[in-house]
Design a protein around this nucleic acid. Structure first.
Lengths: 314, 314
DNA sequence: ATGAAAGCGCTAACAC
DNA sequence: GTGTTAGCGCTTTCAT
């Protein structure tokens, strides 16, 4: 009943004699023995966790991506360490150092801008799979998995223009963080191509719904409005209803993300569906795929695309 | 330039001579040195992480609770390991074992039912702060921080009854998991006290909004409806609008949770505000408070209460 | 199929 | 203010 045999009984039960195995398992259950992961990691020279960094846990997109990732990780007996930057790259840099200290099997960044240059350098040095998820990055540390936020919003704006809308505003939270600038760029590209101009309504509120709600007072001269997120759009719908403006007759409203709520509000929200869960799952696949480095070298960015979902609001 | 001095320079910079400290910091930056947390944890006999278990990351309540907890943990240089049970206690038991293997500083369970008896026994043996957050538990492992879901729904039902509603349905996802049974119990208690009967509409859909949306077809004989969550209620509003039923004239609708969306839908949602973020932060406080055991012994359950928020829908 | 020896990288305790 | 010694609990390598 040597220590090493117990170690093997836990990690590779098949290499231990059935009788011994049974006795060991009984003893483990009796004592309530729980192996010390730190010692195991130290001896092996590598940890079993996976690290993820998100701007905020409270955004449904990141929560869904993490949920998919965590499912994938659990299937590999890995647990997930999470850091939240609140859109502050300096925090991201600190987080990356702290997370790398556990020698994770891989790191997933939800958004390429969650860290600054220091964090990126540390990740590059770490020699582990690094996935930048959610957007497409030109020169990722490891691999980038996502879609083009700019192309998505350009597509949506073109739809509005094709439906005859001419004064299309864009509502966004201020300050403009994360992918919002890319979305605005897509909207503006479509407007430029059509010879139109439009106004950005940036509202300094943390809560997305409140951003939309308050923005509704500044849309009286617009006949359409795109929002940086579905949550914002739902707020806009509420604010417009309060002012007695009819959607889509007086003004069209479009969201971004196709959250579950988009289908059940009145009117149902036209929006862009994004493959959040698929991105999270694919990020997990890459972390656990021994060939991740080859894959990243072959195609540094995997575009999962998006889908225009036309409903009643626009 | 001994190893131990580097160790001290990192952990307690003030005990190292300024000149030495500077040289060490320069060297760290140059080499990109990142300490090995496993080795540190092993040597100290304790880890620096905090573990949390949630039924699902995608519920806004748990995401908000985790966000508050993670903020608290980060202030203490601790990182957060997260497990997701998807409402399967067997998964929770496995998760607890895996999480305890990292010798966490403490564990927060969002919902007392995320584990089975095996997990609870392991946690009790671990001799670390254990917080059962979100609901009130009669005999918690360590301490319980939350509010009474039953009392909250009873209060809300009483409000509806006071407003003259007599045929009050309760809409919930099927199967009934988590705190839903407690909420139903509160609703029923109020109805019983008033001599009323009411119907539970349980819809087998995973998505909360869809549950509400579909339930709306089964509410034709009701003059009020309570929902197990705001998300469900928003779905109900959508479904009722589609059927041409007016809220609150024909039927009152009430939610649970006071999510941000509740204030911006039309009509604005009457609901129960719950102290999610305060619970998450308080859970963190307990993990890092050396007197947690005394506190838990003195008052095993901390009731953070709830608040009835009356808006237009009911 | 099982065990013995060595060492992973760090920190606690104790010098100096 | 800094260094030395020992050891944390595992796993790897090499026996047996």
């Amino acid at each position: 009943v040597g220590a090493i045999t117990v170690s093997r009984a836990i990690r590779e039960p098949l290499t231990v004699a059935p009788a011994t195995l049974q006795r060991i398992e009984a003893a483990i259950a009796e004592v309530g023995y729980i192996p010390n992961q730190s010692a195991a990691d130290l001896a092996r020279g590598a940890g079993r966790t996976v690290a993820a960094v998100v701007p905020t846990l409270e955004a449904p997109y990141f929560a869904a991506g993490l949920a998919a990732l965590i499912e994938r990780a659990e299937a590999e007996q890995a647990s997930l360490s999470i850091g939240q930057t609140l859109y502050d790259p300096a925090r991201g840099d600190r987080l990356v150092t702290a997370l790398l200290a556990s020698r994770p099997r891989g790191v997933v960044l939800f958004g390429a801008d969650v860290t600054g240059p220091a964090g990126r350098a540390a990740l590059a040095r770490a020699d582990i799979p690094v996935v930048e998820a959610w957007e497409l990055v030109a020169r990722p540390i490891g691999i980038s998995i996502g879609f083009s936020h700019q192309a998505a919003c350009q597509r949506l704006a073109e739809h509005l223009i094709a439906r005859g809308r001419r004064r299309i505003a864009f509502v966004v939270r201020a300050p403009i963080v994360g992918r919002a600038a890319q979305r605005i760029a897509g909207w503006r590209a479509a407007l430029d191509a059509a010879g139109l101009t439009g106004e950005v309504v940036a509202v300094p509120e943390a809560q997305p719904y409140a951003v939309g709600w308050l923005a509704a007072t500044q849309l009286d001269t617009s006949d359409a409005v795109m929002c940086a997120a579905d949550t914002v759009a739902v707020g806009v719908l509420g604010g417009l209803a309060r002012r007695g403006r009819r959607v889509p007759e007086d003004i069209a409203v479009a969201g971004f993300g196709d959250l579950d709520v988009a289908a059940v509000v009145t009117p149902a929200l036209t929006t862009i569906a994004v493959p959040t869960a698929r991105i999270g799952a694919a990020a997990g696949d890459h972390l656990f795929d021994p060939r991740w480095r080859d894959a990243a070298a072959a195609a540094p960015a995997r575009d999962f695309g998006f889908e225009l979902v036309v409903r009643d609001s626009a």
